[in-house]
């Protein structure tokens, strides 16, 4: 009775293993975090009335669209990584996971480039509440991406040794990391539409 049950096995009455319930609860709290930020966005936009700038006035929609494609494809490759583990193909997993991390880093560098362009044109968060909420929202989102990259790289590098010892548990870890990553992509879909397109 020493080892913690249901870390890998699924518990009958809930049908889940611990980590999956844990990640879904964490994602629920993330929904509330971005909920708080979007409620701020809505309040600021309504408060600003008509002189709320269109997204396109400050933001380059083309780069934003490209970034959305990058994140969506990284979401798909993350899924492929998990699928290839399910098919016991460790080589494919390493490849797809590597691509996911690379795409995430690409997303961050494009984001960094966008930020530097803003600062070069002297658009700072303190200019108006649109830029303030833009930098805050995308900044928090970028922090989440960095967190995801750290976890994914650990699972790609040292963490993948667990594949030999406990393949089942390692597959679950990738699934859980995948759920987090899809959520980050889901938030970006809303963020991109709200900030760049409206």
């Amino acid at each position: 009775m020493q080892e913690i049950p249901y870390t890998v096995a699924v518990r009958q009455d809930t049908g889940l293993y611990n980590a999956k319930m844990g990640i879904w609860l964490f994602l629920a709290s993330e929904v509330m975090l971005f909920g708080g930020l979007f409620s701020a966005y809505v309040l600021l936009r309504v408060g600003a009335g008509e002189h709320w700038p269109l997204g396109a006035t400050y933001l380059n929609v083309a780069i934003g669209t490209f970034n959305t494609f990058v994140l969506m494809s990284s979401s798909i490759t993350m899924l492929m990584a998990w699928a290839s583990l399910k098919m016991k193909n460790f080589g494919h997993f390493k490849m797809y996971q590597g691509i996911t991390i690379a795409l995430a880093l690409l997303f961050l560098s494009v984001k960094g480039y966008e930020y530097s362009m803003k600062f070069k044109h002297h658009h700072f968060p303190s200019d108006n509440t649109f830029l303030a909420i833009y930098f805050t929202l995308t900044g928090i989102h970028a922090l989440h991406i960095i967190g995801g990259v750290v976890v994914n790289s650990y699972l790609w590098g040292p963490g993948s040794k667990m594949w030999q010892a406990e393949p089942e548990r390692f597959t679950n870890r990738i699934e859980v990391a995948g759920l987090y990553w899809h959520f980050v992509d889901l938030v970006w879909i809303f963020l991109f539409s709200v900030m760049y397109l409206l």
């Binding site: 975090l33 909920g35 708080g36």
Partner: peptide, 19 residues
């Protein structure tokens, strides 16, 4: 989490000069 969002915004107000 909403308080975390609010305190991030207050940090932006205090450090980055947003309003």
């Amino acid at each position: 989490p909403p308080l975390e969002a609010a305190s991030v915004m207050q940090l932006m107000d205090r450090l980055a000069g947003t309003s």
